[in-house]
């Protein structure tokens, strides 16, 4: 357990330790699965056996001492109790170190931080989730949630686009979703291969596969370039900007709205987001 050497007396020390927003908690790796060449799915449990409380769409700072921390969207739903999932893509110092860890190892988490998907505005409506590439990871928290609480939503439609079939994440989930009666699942890849029998094309090509009601609540997460094109399609369909939610990626270094690396205008993506209504940020320069 973390301890303190605070010099300011017992009582203040206790407050400082408890309130130190940079002090992480230990989490045990229950399971680790290599899902692509670059990505691993970690199933974690807090070392003190307490429940990780979070909302779908919130982020965690995940790291190791000596290496640092990276912001990751929680990739499982809080409705799946006891454990929680994250996906680590090997892109830098921290992620490469994390992806060397094995089942039973310990890593450090801090959070959850930020605002997740606005469930109160999603419930009772058609829900369309559009995930591109690694954007499937944070949205999986909402996908699982919607599947677990299916009655809270009307239609549930999911678009998923990957660069090529080898880049597809959560293969077991995809297999379930393809068969599921609970979700209308549509997928595409930018580039097919000889084994691929599904749709080939950018993610917006999936809009022709189904009819979307203008009252649908839409959640988008993917590479920055994807947002513009998807929003254009949604505008054509008459979906209100207040009902389009974007899950943004920035350099969320501290996760607590201080360090400044993820600022867009007066917003800090890590605390004001990472999920924003399009109507909330459409006027902000540099947002999308």
């Amino acid at each position: 357990m973390p301890t303190t050497t605070c010099a300011c007396g017992g009582k203040a020390a206790a407050k400082d330790v408890k309130d130190n927003i940079f002090l992480p908690k230990e989490a045990k790796i229950v399971r680790v699965e290599k899902t692509t060449e670059m990505e691993r799915i970690f199933t974690l449990r807090l070392a003190d056996e307490s429940q990780m409380k979070f909302e779908p769409g919130q982020i965690l700072e995940v790291g190791l001492m000596g290496y640092g921390e990276i912001p990751l969207g929680l990739a499982s739903s809080p409705t799946r109790e006891k454990t929680f999932d994250i996906v680590v893509r090997s892109v830098g110092r921290v992620s490469q170190a994390l992806n060397r860890l094995q089942q039973g190892d310990t890593l450090l988490v801090r959070g959850p931080w930020g605002k997740g998907f606005p469930l109160e505005n999603l419930r009772g409506h058609d829900l369309l989730i559009i995930a591109g590439g690694i954007g499937l990871c944070p949205t999986r928290s909402l996908i699982q949630y919607a599947l677990d609480r299916r009655k809270e939503f009307k239609r549930f439609i999911l678009f998923y686009g990957a660069r090529d079939p080898q880049q597809q994440l959560f293969l077991a989930d995809l297999a379930d979703w393809r068969k599921s009666q609970d979700v209308e699942y549509h997928e595409t890849v930018d580039r097919g291969d000889p084994t691929w029998k599904g749709n080939v094309g950018v993610i917006t090509s999936l809009f022709s596969k189904t009819k979307i009601d203008p009252g649908t609540r839409v959640v988008i997460c993917g590479p920055p370039i994807m947002f513009k094109f998807v929003i254009r399609e949604l505008e054509k369909l008459g979906v209100a900007r207040a009902n389009i939610y974007l899950d943004l990626e920035r350099r969320m270094k501290c996760g607590v709205g201080k360090c400044g690396h993820c600022q867009i205008n007066d917003k800090y993506v890590c605390t004001d987001g990472p999920v924003f209504a399009f109507s909330e940020i459409e006027h902000l320069e540099e947002a999308i």
Binding site: C8, N20, E26
Partner: peptide, 12 residues
């Protein structure tokens, strides 16, 4: 940090 032991650095 000292191995797995993590200590906050606040000493006002």
């Amino acid at each position: 940090f000292d191995g797995p032991r993590v200590t906050p650095g606040i000493e006002p």
